[in-house]
């Protein structure tokens, strides 16, 4: 699952889709994951990064990661 190439992200959690003109804000965990996705990190790397930084176990992360992907997909921010 890859973020669309031209999506602009910022450290403060803003996401801008230049193709549609839509803006989004993400909470800190969401913003961290999206920045890692933008750096083309693998799922395993993202998971390692997040679970070592935040107090969360693997299965909770997996479930929430899938949910974030669903949110990104719903908002047309993922490559098809």
């Amino acid at each position: 699952m890859k973020l669309k190439k031209n999506i602009a992200t910022s450290e403060s959690g803003f996401i801008f889709n230049p193709a549609t003109g839509d803006s989004y804000s993400a909470n800190p965990v969401g913003s961290d994951i999206i920045l890692l996705m933008k750096d083309n990190k693998s799922i395993a790397e993202i998971k390692k990064n997040i679970t070592s930084k935040y107090d969360v176990d693997d299965s909770q992360f997996d479930k929430d990661y899938d949910d974030l992907l669903a949110q990104l997909r719903d908002n047309n921010l993922l490559e098809h």
């Binding site: 803003f14 801008f16 803006s23 804000s25």
Partner: peptide, 10 residues
């Protein structure tokens, strides 16, 4: 500019 819109929104 979009930054202004993002700032007031967030």
């Amino acid at each position: 500019n979009i930054e202004e819109f993002q700032k007031i929104s967030a």
